[in-house]
Design a protein around this nucleic acid. Structure first.
Lengths: 242, 242
DNA sequence: GTCGTTAGTGAACATGTGTGCACTATAAAC
DNA sequence: GTTTATAGTGCACACATGTTCACTAACGAC
């Protein structure tokens, strides 16, 4: 992790130095990190990340990808890989960052345009699964490497998922039915929701995208599971005295 | 899958042929598949399976294991591998079989000695997680390859998990509180339970085995999640008219 | 225009890989 | 005892892998 941060930090510092010296802070649109050179570098960096995600799509797991393979798909010679990452581990950490960036963006969009209370659960499930389908590679990466990746990648993903769970718990506090939940119990419930959604995501990602019936079944299953959870949550704390 | 069945079938047939011809169905204790030779073969077969499980314990994922590596840990030359499996895929399918055999055995034991209704959920969680810890390699294999394995292994695991979910649903029908559940909804609820338990299993398998506090936290989390699910289930079907 | 920096190249290396083949030793069948 | 079947060996091959190194070309700073 820290190696990734160091690299990114250095790159940012370099880019900052250049823009500071070349542009005396004037009024140019200042597209960040301008310059044909930087743009090209970022492009092949992205090509490497995309190549890994693409390779990961089918059967493969991240730990079975080879550096050469990724470089080849990215249209670059193996040695060029080292201009961007110190090795596959660091590329993996970048994928974690990117993947959770898209997940958090989804949450941001969802919060900025809140759904009407009617059918809230069903609509939320719909929105989430549709988004997961649209960004299948990122969600697939999270789902796979959450459990099977190298320990650095796996731990990073698990940390992000915990963070997401906490965010969700914070959102849940707004529901009037969930009074009387303490923080721990809220996270416990949020964990249940996250599990159900991740499980549904795995099913969606493995499903035939053209089989509308199967997709519908998965959506409905997830909706019912969430409803059951909320039904239980509305009763919580009345019986269990703890 | 069918290649595995074929191989096993052939081996069984061969062993059958031998025992039929060598033993005229007399009163010898007839330990099945007797003979020093068969016993030796089964021993190195098991050594190969154990080697794979052992290698899988830490960081590695099954698809990143090499045939030579497995053979070396098993204390056998690579070519000898082919006397037992046609390749790593077939060995993977055998691991699926073995892993779910231990899971089903746990269920069998649990059913034969039913728990008293008091604290039933808490005790069941305790039993399950303790069993998972005791058979960590098998449960780890299931947890990992459920989502990241080659498609044949992954599909086999998912099929077994569906089967397990159905079994659990059949068990749930005995609860008086769960009247009014149709079969689909029972499986939906059972899926929720399975998800929660698998998620807790993943946490347990990653946890430090000596950190009693952390283990306790995981146990309690899983217990609360199951309680919440059952709380919701008790209310099911009253509100949702479907 | 000149020159330094650097993203990307191509070749080389040592090592690991899956798989085939002739072989050996030994349990089992006769 | 003689013969047969076979689990395991040792060696070979062609190929894939991670990493290094000197090199080239072109962008950016001056």
């Amino acid at each position: 992790m820290f190696r990734l941060l160091k690299t990114l930090g250095l790159q940012c510092a370099m880019r900052l130095k250049r823009s500071l010296s070349s542009e005396p802070s004037d009024s140019t649109p200042a597209s960040p990190g301008t310059g044909v050179r930087d743009e090209r570098k970022q492009r092949t960096r992205k090509a490497l990340l995309d190549a890994a995600l693409t390779l990961l799509d089918g059967e493969r797991s991240f730990s079975s990808l080879s550096l050469r393979e990724v470089a080849k798909v990215a249209g670059v010679v193996p040695a060029a890989f080292y201009r961007h990452f110190t090795g596959m581990d660091e590329l993996g950490m970048s994928l974690v960052d990117d993947s959770f960036r898209t997940l958090h963006e989804m949450m941001r969009v969802a919060r900025s345009a809140p759904l009407p209370p009617a059918n809230l659960i069903a609509r939320s499930v719909e929105t989430f699964l549709r988004y997961a389908q649209a960004h299948r590679l990122h969600f697939q990466f999270i789902a796979k490497e959450r459990v099977s990746g190298s320990s650095s990648v796996r731990l990073a993903i698990r940390k992000e998922l915990r963070l997401w769970t906490s965010e969700l718990a914070a959102d849940l506090v707004a529901f009037p039915k969930l009074k009387g939940f303490n923080g721990d119990d809220l996270r416990m419930m949020a964990g249940l929701v996250v599990n159900a959604m991740m499980s549904a995501t795995e099913l969606i990602l493995d499903a035939d995208l053209n089989d509308a019936a199967e997709l519908g079944r998965i959506h409905q299953l997830a909706q019912k599971q969430l409803m059951l959870i909320f039904l239980g949550a509305a009763q919580w704390k009345s019986k269990p005295v703890q």
